[in-house]
Design a protein around this nucleic acid. Structure first.
Lengths: 364, 364
DNA sequence: ACCTAAATTGCATACGTATGCGTGTCAACG
DNA sequence: CGTTGACACGCATACGTATGCAATTTAGGT
């Protein structure tokens, strides 16, 4: 049924290995032969079998990428650039979905059909990196890391970014501050929580457990979290969200509760996913340069493939506060009068984010 | 490096083919031997090589799925269920991205590494189906179809759905109606436009070219389209959007223009993607049952693989109007007085959509 | 105890490509 | 004119698994 290199060889009047060499532009083939072979291959519509090639070379030029459900918009935003970056190095991307329920299926990662793996969803105690190391499968961790694993990684400066948000809120004059955070079982959830709480404390602002909500990185965490926080006796005047997806959920809850943003409530996210710039959200957030992260990861992995025994490397991307429309000073009548001072007038210079980033992203 | 079936055979004291049979539960292996082999395989951590297996069986149990950029939320909404449905039949999904710029790379679809293909992005004149037929690669078209191709397909009743929207708008009393449509080069774009225009005409409502905008299925089409439509002399009181992604763009533009929805303007989408139910959108739209579509497609493809010569089948899913919060009667002072009648009082019974659908979808 | 049939296992080989190595050809050089 | 390379190409084989077929063992029946 399928046409093989033997068929091409027969038509071109050469041996099969010559076909293999000619079509790959390997040396040892005369220009005339090469031309004949190409012509024969073209006329037969020959396409080299990946299975045969992979078996022979023991390389697939495919990279497995473990992602969460694609309906979580953070992942498409990371995967698009990652796909392109890997393609730039000649690798194809194979997507694996981690639904969180049960651990990722291991066999497809170990059956030799992948040259390497990119982990984006690991929890801090995941055993996956250990398994991969044991089997000698090269891998890189992105965005999230795993406790006690010395391996290539590319992450955002989560503590620094969260601290910048704390600074912003303090400068704006907020004293009753809350947070809707991601799971403590993830490095991003943990680090952003720590960075935020520590920086607040440094400013003399308390973040009591009653004003911290934890949940998965999904909009419903933001919805429920905001409703819970807002229905307390002394509701917060500002809420930091563990990522943008949570923040969008919080904004939705605010909309359905009729809470004016930012007059009545400040909401800040983290990541700057493409939707953050949508007019209905206009979310103030911390930008993680996902295209840059993708490029870093691809580079790390490719170098790892070339030099398997090189020491592990770690890349940290510095995040950047993006001022949009969901932050502002607390309302006077909402302020915590005991500690109210001139602080709330110290509104920082508003740097409007360029609107190009992600504006067209749901198609680009 | 990697452990092969030969290694397992040596440890278990049997021949390699026996290992192959034992681990696949093939007949002709005694229970005792099977146990010994399993034990040996387990202790060595043996994972069968996909390349070897594919080469030998000439089947990969992989299905290629051609999708648009994942940042377009329609595709994750379709791909998630599709992935699950195929997995239910024992097939793994391999994702290919069609960026629209240049045609999809053909070789990876023909190199024998896929048992079948699902097409979701084809334009009406795409040559891809022809190529696949010529090479004998089984495939199914989903959502969109290609002109003149007799092949398995599963699509939504686009004309019917669009006509239902026209009916709704007419009943509400709208006379100045506009549409922001998808590309005429796609079957969905074309059919929804035709269905809408024809049903309006049947109601005596005109849809002049000046009130029709065409563009890619992305939010920016909705943004720009709405701005253009609204800034005309006699702006429409209702806008039908070619899909939800366009509608979300239109809603964003409305938000930034300060247009009250639905008091000032009715906006209706198509597809009912998970985000349509978000409170900030609360989009009235036409539901296409994507999980059902995914199941249909998987079934069609699996049966095609079993019986390659069976006649092509076509499945059409009937869409359903979902009433949410972006539709209403036209404002009195916005009405087209010449044709104003009691029609605008005939508001249909509002059937509130269940909010479960897609509520958690950005994580589910 | 013997014969037959069934069950179990091993042997040989196919799948399609890539590559080390040997052979043959031709040109350049002494 | 003989020698030495360089180059082009074919031969043989490896990669890991699956399968048809033969060989061997086991069970079953009289």
């Amino acid at each position: 049924m399928a046409v093989t290199s033997h068929d091409v060889a027969r038509l071109a009047g050469v041996a099969q290995p010559t076909v293999s060499r000619a079509l790959r532009d390997a040396k040892g083939v005369s220009a005339a032969t090469r031309r004949r072979v190409r012509e024969a291959a073209r006329s037969l519509g020959y396409v080299p079998s990946q299975a045969g090639r992979a078996l022979s070379t023991r390389r697939s030029r495919k990279i497995g990428v473990i992602s969460a459900e694609l309906s979580n918009p953070f992942y498409p935003a990371l995967l698009g650039p990652l796909h392109d970056a890997l393609a730039g190095h000649g690798y194809r991307t194979v997507l694996f979905t981690d639904r969180g329920e049960r651990p990722v299926e291991l066999d497809p990662l170990l059956d030799g059909s992948l040259d390497g793996v990119v982990l984006t969803t690991s929890e801090r105690t995941s055993s996956l990196p250990g398994e991969l190391m044991a089997r000698g499968v090269p891998f890189v961790m992105v965005n999230r890391t795993v406790d006690g694993i010395e391996a290539d990684r590319c992450v955002a400066g989560n503590r620094v970014g969260a601290a910048a948000v704390a600074e912003l809120l303090a400068h704006l004059g907020h004293r009753r501050v809350a947070a809707i955070l991601g799971p403590e079982s993830t490095s991003t959830g943990q680090e952003r929580a720590d960075g935020f709480r520590d920086a607040l404390a440094h400013r003399g602002i308390d973040l009591p457990p009653a004003r911290m909500v934890h949940g998965p990185f999904d909009p419903d965490t933001g919805r429920r979290g905001l409703i819970r926080l807002i229905s307390t006796e002394a509701p917060p005047t500002a809420v930091f969200c563990g990522n943008d997806v949570i923040a969008l959920g919080a904004l939705n809850a605010a909309a359905s509760l009729g809470i004016d943003i930012p007059q009545r409530l400040t909401i800040v996210g983290f990541d700057d996913i493409p939707m953050a710039v949508w007019e209905v959200f206009d979310l103030t957030t911390v930008r993680v340069d996902l295209p840059e992260m993708a490029r870093s990861v691809a580079a790390l992995l490719v170098e790892r493939l070339a030099t398997p025994d090189a020491p592990a490397r770690s890349v940290v991307l510095e995040p950047r506060l993006i001022m949009r429309g969901t932050h502002g000073p607390p309302r006077r009548d909402e302020e915590d009068y005991e500690s109210a001072g001139p602080l709330h007038q110290m509104q920082p210079r508003i740097v409007r984010a360029d609107t190009e980033w992600g504006r067209d992203a749901s198609r680009t």
